[in-house]
Write a protein that binds this DNA or RNA. Structure first.
Lengths: 108, 108
DNA sequence: TCTTTAATTAAGTAAATGCTAAAATACATC
DNA sequence: GATGTATTTTAGCATTTACTTAATTAAAGA
């Protein structure tokens, strides 16, 4: 269920990352509002928002003609969990040298 | 300095993600060893490793003909920090509705 | 209803990506 | 020095990506 590469791919574009980052800080914003930060067309912004929504990172709701986007916490939770697990690996006692020694057998 | 989109792009490929994940768990491993998990050529693996190294996520050292790769914690630390900051935004009291209300002015 | 505002979908294109086979590099061993 | 092992670099190719303009959908207000 958790497709981390897809989540990473969604955040790999500078425009999309900036959109998610801004929505995290400022909360719900419209497509047009989000697009003003960039020198790209409205369709380009809409396509980026579609990719983020497809990846489960954003949700959308309608208010009149506007479409209001916000971050879907569940869409990022696997990423957060993986990131913290990763940090665990290098913070919980075992450094690179120790792992290297431990792996001498299987690696050799 | 912290180019998060580049970090995300490096982890957006399933092969590269699996490589990093395995190196986190098992520590230093050789290029050939890492490649055995996938049905792609050795050059393809080498190119993936190059991208991860370019992104600062992996380091490499030589032992005879082998090239041993391991995770460079600093290369992931910005990602981990951002992920936790993101979680803060949705866990520290303010839910989507509250943020929406707060932004009525600027958004309108 | 006609116009304006907001956003999306569609179609086409240039650039980037991930792969392959072939060639090159590097070290170890015979 | 020749051979085998491990890996990388190069060149070429098919697919995917991010963008554009044009057309479409939808709601608001005159």
């Amino acid at each position: 269920m958790p497709d981390l590469p897809q989540t990473f791919a969604a955040l790999a574009d500078p425009v999309r990352f900036a959109i998610v980052d801004r929505l995290l800080r400022e909360g719900e914003l419209s497509a047009g509002d989000l697009g003003k930060d960039f020198d790209i067309s409205a369709p380009a912004v809409s396509q980026h928002l579609g990719i983020l929504r497809e990846a489960g990172i954003l949700t959308r709701r309608a208010r009149a003609q506007k479409r209001l986007y916000s971050v879907e916490p569940q869409g990022l939770s696997d990423l957060v969990d993986w990131a913290n697990a990763a940090r665990q690996f290098w913070e919980s006692g075992m450094n690179r040298l120790e792992r290297a020694l431990k792996n001498q057998g299987p690696t050799q």
